[in-house]
Design a protein around this nucleic acid. Sequence first.
DNA 1: TGCATTGTAACCATTATTGTTACATCTTGT
DNA 2: ACAAGATGTAACAATAATGGTTACAATGCA
Lengths: 147, 147
Amino acid sequence: MQISSRFTLAVHIFACIDTFGSECKVTSDFLAGSTNVNPVIIRKILGQLKGAGLIEVARGTGGTTVTKPLSEISFLDIYNAVECVENGELFHFHENPSTNCPVGRNIHHILDDKLLRVQSALERELASITLADIKRDTEKYLREESR
Amino acid sequence: MQISSRFTLAVHIFACIDTFGSECKVTSDFLAGSTNVNPVIIRKILGQLKGAGLIEVARGTGGTTVTKPLSEISFLDIYNAVECVENGELFHFHENPSTNCPVGRNIHHILDDKLLRVQSALERELASITLADIKRDTEKYLREESR
DNA sequence: TGCATTGTAACCATTATTGTTACATCTTGT
DNA sequence: ACAAGATGTAACAATAATGGTTACAATGCA
């Protein structure tokens, strides 16, 4: 199954904070307008990003700020913040392979290291992309637009 | 969200066919016993693997056989056969980013190449593992067991 | 013809996602 | 003090995917 749109939403949110944060207050309503997603969904994601220490959200007054240099926030940080994959395991293993069958009682030994290799490849690539890349490309496309 | 257990089930199925196929007929009931999963679920997966040309299933008489050398069936082949990720896209993008917002109307340009990089990393690693690896390790663990 | 098996349809329960309304709580400005 | 604008969160609903189950027609062999 697909990775939740919470991930692309979170990156979109960071792009907005970086692009508009200096001009205006980036509230959940503002972000709901840009993403076309319900403000409560946005606030839940903001809560998860805040929980991971990536942003700060101003109660009462409103508005969102990033807590670290953009080059220090990777896609993996965001993925981990919003994804909630159970136990951090990408693959869902069938629960109770038979212990009476030689294959059934060894299938975890056989498979686990290979599943981990795949998951690590995914995470390694996620870790190699940062919000600095997003900032650079966002500015590039906005410049192209205004020509 | 996690990748469906159809994937680990499919690998388990191949391990059974390879291990027991020469001794006995590998039916959906047999596989249901080894995996501890309902035979109808097994038959659905067998249907997907058959549709991908990876196995043949004997109607009426029963039993399953692999159609290619194990080294020519990769995890990616199996993943593609059973996964049914919509449009083959790993990431679910939020559907209607606002075209009124500069970020909203460019977010796809900004993100799509990076999401593709991540998806490709996953698929590359899946492609690097084949059923020959599974056969080798299955035999290894069964040998260790019988000592 | 009888039997074991596959292929499939038709349900159901459970879970995750996304959307929505509602409201308590917080902060600042007046 | 209080009104206004935000956030945080609970509660509920709609939709979709997963995995399970029963049932049964169709198949191929003994």
